[in-house]
Simulated scan of single mutants.
Amino acid sequence: MQRSVWRARILACVVLLAAIFGFARPADAAVPDAKAWVLWNQTAGATIGFGTWPANTTVTPVGVGRYRVRFPGQAAPGGVVHVTAVHNAPHWCQAETWFPSGVDEIAYIRCYRVGGALDPSSFSAFFTRSSGLPSSGPYGYVDSQASGALVSSYNSVGAPNVSTPTGVGSWHVRFPGIVTGGPLDGSLQATAVNNVTGARCKVGGWSSNSGGQDVKVACFNSAGAPFNTRFTLTYQHKVSLYGATIPPKYHGYLLNQPPLGPPTTNFNSVLGLSANTIMPAGVGLSLVTFPKIGFPQNTVQVTAYGGSSNFCGLNTFWNNFTTGPDLVVRDVNCFTNAGVPVNTGFTISASSIL
């Protein structure tokens, strides 16, 4: 009888631990459930290994400026996609759609040149999906319809995120309960989602306050006019862009307003606050260095910051130098809607698999 009681108690403890730590349901495991990224070299027609994970991720052109990305073994419903154009001429890329296919995740990407025509481009694309708790730190995302209805959402404290339209091409996104010291902490990435029209989204501004994170998202069409579209937005604070840390031990972010934003928007997982650097490299060009975190396979994403229709991308592929090892972006490039180089604000985020 006593042995049966102890057996029952042990079983109850196992069940309790499973509920707490998510052992019983993989979908509710520690953040994230799925993650993947790819760096596509349009000129070579091939993925680049140091910027691609899983290694056997494939990209297939499916028309002018359209690409089908297969992330093997990373199928998950919902989640978010971000994408950054890599081109030395003014281009942007956006998400079209993404969905599970068997055990794989499929994403379609569209890239445009100034004027709104689809055009081939290299790009850096990223997918993640999270559910349940625990989370490594303050983190959240939304996939929002233009109406504000959420297609997918995650909040590291379990509170319900909200997306509220505030005018044509403008939204107030709230991550309640994700509280930091303020008045501005962490980083953000935004991406337009549209399967018909060329569109760009950016961070118009945000505040870190006692209630959480309040973010203004602004979206534009190819003419530079405010535009209602679906979009994704991710918030991170001292965690990777996919919401985890240790691992990965190597991640960082930076806000250029310009010049640099507050120290609390410049984070390096090895060296702490204010360790990442930015140097002007010409009009509309910024050389960004993330010291000590240049470990592949890693991803870099860029989003323009501010109220105008300016947009930003990458001039070429980043480098992971063995010295440091440092991750060096040469350069972030930013343009007006007409494609003229311009010094403007942006956020940049780098995350490794390690």
Rank of each mutant, 00 (worst) to 15 (best):
Q2N: 03
V5E: 05
A8G: 04
I10P: 01
L16P: 02
A19C: 13
A19H: 09
I20H: 03
F23N: 04
F23L: 09
A24W: 10
R25S: 15
A27I: 13
A29S: 14
W37F: 15
T43S: 14
A44R: 15
W53K: 08
T58P: 05
V69W: 02
A76I: 08
V80Q: 08
V81W: 00
V81L: 06
A85L: 07
H87C: 14
P90S: 10
W98S: 14
A107C: 03
I109A: 00
I109Q: 01
A117R: 05
D119Y: 13
S122L: 10
F126C: 05
F127A: 09
F127E: 04
T128K: 00
P138Y: 04
Y139D: 01
Y141V: 00
V142C: 12
D143Y: 11
A146T: 11
L150I: 07
V151W: 11
G158W: 15
P160M: 11
T164R: 10
T164H: 04
P165R: 14
T166E: 14
I178F: 00
P183T: 12
L184C: 04
A190F: 02
V196W: 15
T197C: 07
A199L: 01
R200T: 03
C201D: 04
K202T: 12
G204P: 12
W206H: 08
W206K: 02
S207V: 15
S208K: 02
S210W: 06
K216I: 15
A218R: 14
C219H: 01
S222I: 13
T232C: 06
L233C: 11
L233M: 12
I246P: 02
P247R: 01
P263C: 05
N266Y: 06
N266R: 00
F267C: 03
S274L: 09
I278M: 12
P280C: 07
P280I: 09
G282A: 10
T289W: 05
V300R: 02
A304G: 13
S309Q: 11
G313P: 04
N319Y: 15
F321A: 13
L327D: 02
V328I: 14
V332S: 01
C334R: 00
C334Y: 02
N337V: 12
G339F: 15
V340S: 13
G345N: 09
S349P: 01
S351I: 03
